[in-house]
Simulated assay, not measured.
Amino acid sequence: MLNPGALRAHLLAARLAGPVATSRETSLRSYRLFAARDPRVLLGLDPEGAWEQPEVLRLMAERCGVSDDAEHVSGPDVIDPDRTVAALEAFAGRLRAVVAARAPVLLGTGHPHRLLGFYASLARALSAAGCSVLTPAHGRCIDITTRFGVRTYRLDYAHGVASVRVAGAERPGGETGVHTHSPLPVRTALDAAADARIPLPALVIGDHGWVCGAGQLGIEAMGLADTDDPALFVGEAEGRVSVAVPLDDAVRSDYYRPLTRYVLNRACLSQ
């Protein structure tokens, strides 16, 4: 079983932390867009603070370990592995609390090609521990604005984890989904749960719009975020996101398996 030191070594070896594939240029562009309140990087969050670019950069340096030097404008960005380990500990702590309460949960991802396995393992463990893993609005169509215009997607669940697919293009229950930052899927799922008068989730677990969209609506949410996802860390700083785990969210899917084992073990959910 991984200890914190072994986990830290894995994070660096897999480039989940340390120098990561996300470029400094990409991160700084996201901070500029966030300061300009561009919805593409707000991910459904409506920030309370001013959050000008220098303030966003300082926060990301504090929460992720990126350089706080505004003159550092190129090369790979950097995540402090110790911050990742600490955030995963907090993540596991919130899982323990949900299990203790046998509370309902909702899991969703905008990175299904990379992160579905991570969330699916959590869904199985939470279900086995007595938590209801919710699947509201299954099959519902959602119109999402993309850089190619408005596209219609279908909300689908694979192994208890929600993602969106091109409507009519994928078989139901398959594992291929679409990469999206939109908060519309989680809003659709929560609206459907409320309309059906089933319990709302006590916790939403995911990334991108799944976390920020739920947190903005007052539902506890936590998840994974890269250096170019400032919205989750701003949400955490403002109290609308419980835990934002800094790591590269687009490496090979099998590289997240040790993180899954570590989190489940620390949450006393090992199977």
Rank of each mutant, 00 (worst) to 15 (best):
L7I: 15
R8S: 12
H10W: 15
L11G: 13
L11T: 11
L12T: 05
A13S: 14
A14E: 11
R15K: 15
P19E: 15
P19I: 10
S27Y: 02
S30E: 12
S30V: 11
L33G: 03
V41D: 14
L45F: 02
D46A: 15
P47A: 05
E48D: 06
G49I: 09
G49H: 06
A50I: 04
P54V: 10
V56M: 08
M60N: 03
M60D: 08
E62W: 01
R63T: 11
D68S: 15
D68Y: 02
A70W: 06
E71G: 13
S74I: 06
V78L: 13
D80I: 11
V85Y: 12
V85E: 11
A86F: 03
E89I: 03
E89Y: 05
E89L: 12
A92G: 11
G93V: 08
R94Y: 02
L95I: 03
L95R: 01
V99H: 02
V99R: 13
R102Q: 13
L106A: 10
L107I: 04
G108L: 01
P112A: 07
P112C: 03
P112I: 06
H113I: 02
R114P: 00
L115R: 13
F118R: 09
F118K: 08
Y119E: 11
A120L: 08
S121A: 14
R124H: 10
A125K: 15
A128V: 04
G130K: 09
C131K: 05
L134F: 08
G149T: 12
V150R: 14
Y153Q: 05
R154P: 09
Y157S: 09
A158T: 14
H159N: 12
H159M: 15
G160H: 05
A162Q: 01
V166S: 09
G168W: 00
A169V: 14
P172V: 08
P172M: 04
G173F: 00
G174V: 08
V178T: 11
H179V: 13
L190G: 12
A193I: 03
R197T: 01
R197M: 08
I198Y: 00
L200W: 01
L200H: 02
A202T: 10
V204E: 01
G206A: 12
D207N: 07
G209F: 14
G213Q: 02
L217W: 07
G218F: 07
I219S: 06
I219L: 15
E220P: 14
A221W: 02
M222H: 08
G223S: 12
L224H: 03
A225S: 13
A231E: 11
V234W: 07
G239I: 11
R240A: 04
R240I: 13
V243W: 11
A244C: 05
A244S: 10
A250I: 01
A250C: 10
R252W: 07
R252E: 00
R257M: 08
P258Y: 05
P258F: 09
R261E: 15
V263Y: 01
R266P: 01
R266D: 01
L269R: 04
L269M: 06
